[in-house]
């Protein structure tokens, strides 16, 4: 029994080590030519711009729901005036970054895992190598970099749409004007609330891009393997994002004490 547990733990550690090396290699190769700016721009469009409708809609809905919950809580204490600020703090500091990361892990992680997995099993990755193209750089590094760049931008979209959603919910209940809502929302928000929380999503982007690319590159067993790579990309990236978030939040509080 103990031996089995040990074997599983060692295998898990070996896997984490391999994925970490994959990600570190990607970061290292980022600074070596060729820089593949076109591919990176194309993936930022695919990952960022094409995720924007999903992110914006979700942000809006989350803002509405958060506003309703905040009102229900603060109304008891007669603190309705704090609803915009409470919502903005919750959204910008935590809800926006985490929800964006999980949504992107679902949409983009699955896409990268499936796309690279399919390329692997149909020998397209070998074909890239055969035409003297560094497949790791061309396929993995570009996607990982695009995820790192796109995540903070998408998080900003979620935050903005969430605040708009919060105002819409508040307007429906109390008729509060946009200007007043906006002023109250940002009355307690400072740059050190927004910048670290938003920039930490670059780490989430690194996690999503690395795990999905790694699983795509190591796909075996045909179409079944492609499906597995896609699913595992989402599951593992989501778990790792949630766990890493704990560490990152602690780090942010250390660097920027409340």
């Amino acid at each position: 029994m103990l031996e089995r547990v040990g074997t599983v733990v060692l295998a898990a550690l070996a896997w984490v080590g391999e994925v970490s090396l994959f990600g570190l290699r990607a970061l290292g190769e980022l600074f070596l030519p060729p820089y593949e700016p076109r591919e990176i721009a194309r993936h930022i469009y695919e990952i960022g711009w094409r995720s924007a409708p999903l992110i914006a809609t979700s942000g809006l809905a989350i803002g509405v729901v958060l506003s309703m919950h905040t009102r229900a809580s603060l109304e008891r204490f007669g603190a309705e005036a704090l609803i915009p600020a409470g919502l903005a703090i919750a959204l910008i500091r935590e809800t926006g970054p985490l929800v964006t990361a999980l949504l992107v892990a679902g949409r983009v992680g699955a896409g990268i895992g499936a796309e690279l997995g399919a390329m692997k099993v149909t020998e397209q990755i070998d074909a890239l190598e055969a035409v003297a193209v560094d497949s790791f750089k061309y396929l993995a590094v570009t996607r990982i970099v695009a995820c790192i760049i796109a995540m903070p931008l998408l998080t900003t979209v979620t935050d903005f749409c969430g605040i708009v959603g919060g105002w819409m919910a508040e307007f429906a209940v109390s008729g509060m004007s946009w200007r007043l809502y906006f002023n109250r929302a940002f009355s307690l928000i400072e740059f050190h609330d927004f910048i670290p929380a938003t920039m930490k999503t670059a780490v989430f982007g690194l996690i999503i891009g690395t795990i999905a690319s790694y699983l795509g590159f190591t796909t075996t067993q045909g179409t079944e393997g492609v499906g597995r790579a896609s699913t595992r990309s989402v599951v593992l990236a989501s778990i790792l994002i949630i766990v890493t978030n704990v560490v990152l939040v602690r780090l942010i509080f250390l660097v920027f004490p409340a």
């Binding site: 399919a118 149909t122 020998e123 070998d126 055969a130 035409v131 003297a132 560094d134």
Partner: peptide, 23 residues
């Protein structure tokens, strides 16, 4: 790395499955 790429540039390879880039 680059040395291998330079050799590969002088070779063409038709894969059994053709391996066309499908995108």
């Amino acid at each position: 790395g680059r040395d291998l790429a330079n050799v590969r540039k002088r070779m063409g390879f038709l894969f059994q499955s053709a391996a066309l880039f499908d995108s």
